[in-house]
Design a protein around this nucleic acid. Structure first.
Lengths: 221, 221
DNA sequence: ACCTGAACACCGTTCAAGT
DNA sequence: ACCTGAACACCGTTCAAGT
């Protein structure tokens, strides 16, 4: 029997696309380069995939869907777990930070929104406020994702974040004192702050605001 | 004297770019089309502008910087005013929602961050927590900007949002009940919800969380 | 059914040459 | 100093033709 080691398929194409995106970012993924890596022609790709956008959506979904099946006992902790799942996935695959907000990736985003919304409901937020609360969490998470993607794209793939932050911190520290008094004050903290912890701090800020929406339980007798 | 009505300049180029972006989105702006609109050659553009990215950054900054000089008496209200300024600017020029998170637009983002940070400081947040609080506000604002940009890009420029929301609402309502119970519940609200109000609700959620960070003042005697 | 690769209709950017 | 426009090195996508 012949081993079709290299049988082409949608999965193999998407997998190779993810690898190329990880290695060289969004600009590194061209259909031609993808075909070359898979040892085929251009048309072969287009047989399995509608177009480049379809490919990007599939790649984003592949990376993020796996990141979502975390859970915790507490609804608040589950929110944190889901948020961190997205954060870590975007951290490992920075190009997803740009893809996620795109409407074509809406199905992936909807999965995140659904998980967040259920926790908001479980926290006891009144029905009328659930939509706003879940949206706030989602938008914050997507915002951080976008910023991290930008940060990662600004440096050669593989550069450690400490280097980037150090240089950014130096820039901020040199800013005009009058016009940028806050940025200058914060510059010192920027160099050695923990992105992940700061991300969680933001989640906790929103969760605190959400908790304030929950009506107080009847006082115990 | 000759009226040099059409003297080329960086400002005129950036202005024309903003118009083209407004009319036909990011994909509608090509250097060739821009040259044609300004009745010049390709090279003329590149004499005044480093490259296309430079142009996009300048266009984004032009649109957003004006949106930031709002103020209010209360720090919390100023946060709301700045946030709404960004929201409305992105609403009027959806392509900025995608540009803003890019690192090349960092200077524009820094202006927003600075304004937010000052209010956080004015609110009495302890120094150690100011960075996290200002970042949370910024990331939320950028997240909403990105989502609104995606929404706007999904329809022909000029389509009113109600139409988009109605179709999205219909999609959500048709989702599988088990897998998407939250999205389905919320679908009804989606059709007629006010984006701007929801955006502000998110800001208020974060502000509520931030207020909880402020140490209580000494009790009045 | 699946794949090939030439061809099409674009891009951003450069640069010798003009005024 | 400022502008022209041909040329370069790419793109994504299509499609007749092959197996």
């Amino acid at each position: 029997m012949t081993r079709r080691v290299d049988a082409l398929s949608r999965e193999r194409i998407v997998g190779a696309a993810v690898e190329m995106l990880d290695e060289s970012g969004e600009s590194g993924l061209t259909v031609r380069a993808l075909a070359a890596r898979l040892n085929t022609g251009l048309g072969a790709i287009y047989w399995h995939v509608t177009n480049k956008d379809d490919l990007l959506v599939a790649a984003t979904d592949a990376v993020l869907t796996g990141a979502l099946d975390t859970a915790a006992a507490d609804p608040a902790d589950t929110v944190r777990a889901v948020a961190l799942g997205v954060f870590d996935a975007v951290d490992a695959h920075p190009w997803t930070g740009t893809q996620l907000p795109r409407l074509t990736s809406q199905l992936t985003t909807l999965k995140i929104f659904e998980r967040l919304g259920r926790q908001v409901r479980a926290l006891g937020v009144p029905a009328a406020a659930q939509f706003d609360a879940a949206s706030a969490l989602l938008n914050y998470i997507l915002g951080v994702a976008g910023q991290n993607a930008a940060l990662a794209r600004s440096v050669a793939p593989g550069t450690d974040r400490a280097t980037v932050l150090r240089s950014m911190s130096a820039t901020w520290a040199a800013l005009d004192q009058d016009e940028h008094s806050f940025a200058r004050t914060v510059a010192g903290r920027l160099a050695d702050h923990d992105d992940r912890a700061q991300f969680l701090a933001g989640i906790d800020l929103i969760l605190a605001g959400i908790r304030a929406l929950v009506p107080a339980p009847a006082p115990s007798p």
